[in-house]
Design a binder for these strands. Structure first.
Lengths: 110, 110
DNA sequence: AATTTGCGCAACCAAATAGTTGCATATATA
DNA sequence: TATATATGCAACTATTTGGTTGCGCAAATT
């Protein structure tokens, strides 16, 4: 069972859950109220998000409050960071490359 | 068939392909050389990456050169940006929240 | 012209995913 | 104590995914 942040964020419902909980910690029932699927379906999503560390749980009486662990999103951010240079400072070069790619001398110029 | 950037990045092989191609545009065969799976499996991944705009293609004779479209990663970056404030400036508050979550007055303080 | 090479497409398969319903358990409340 | 509520777990299902093999076609090479 793959359980990493990227895979967890692949599902749009889970991304919405994160957005929702980021505003304020919520119980599974409270989260489920915002969606059309069953409470159990939401619970499954919450479980996945918790397993990969994007949510943390704090039992409170019979309720369970879930909160986002925003630092965990840093893993994605870090990965993206590797490409930031390319897309911010070299994408003009890439354009050039794409336009001239038929001249082999440019093919490995990036 | 869901075809968005988040879903495309969910697969670790696809993330590796992006890293690889980011260095320098490559043909499917060249990419496949770096992996243990079949050329067709890689071609499928490349297709998915292309369909969601993370790769662009430039036919060159009988070869097909694929290059990353790094701007497309901006979509992920933009989404993350919504949480950056939380995880950079408020994660100390979150810690406090998590530690004191049993006192209801703090539950919605984030 | 015949052959080789690069690559996409189709069909198929096992495993994972996202959903469902039903049940068990723990905490609150009457 | 009995009941209601919150939530997790298990079993089941349809769909999607990631992989395979085989085929066909277009471009290069002989």
């Amino acid at each position: 069972m793959r359980r990493d942040v990227f895979q967890a964020l692949a599902d749009p419902t889970r991304r919405e859950i994160i957005t929702l909980i980021a505003r304020k910690p919520l119980t599974p029932n409270a989260v489920a109220d915002s969606f059309d699927v069953s409470r159990q379906a939401i619970s499954k999503h919450i479980k996945i998000l918790t397993e990969c560390g994007l949510l943390v749980i704090r039992p409170q009486g019979r309720e369970r409050l879930y909160a986002v662990q925003p630092q965990k999103l840093g893993e994605v951010s870090d990965w993206l960071e590797n490409f930031r240079t390319i897309w911010e400072t070299r994408f003009d070069k890439l354009d050039t490359l794409l336009q001239n790619m038929d001249s082999p001398s440019n093919s490995d110029a990036i």
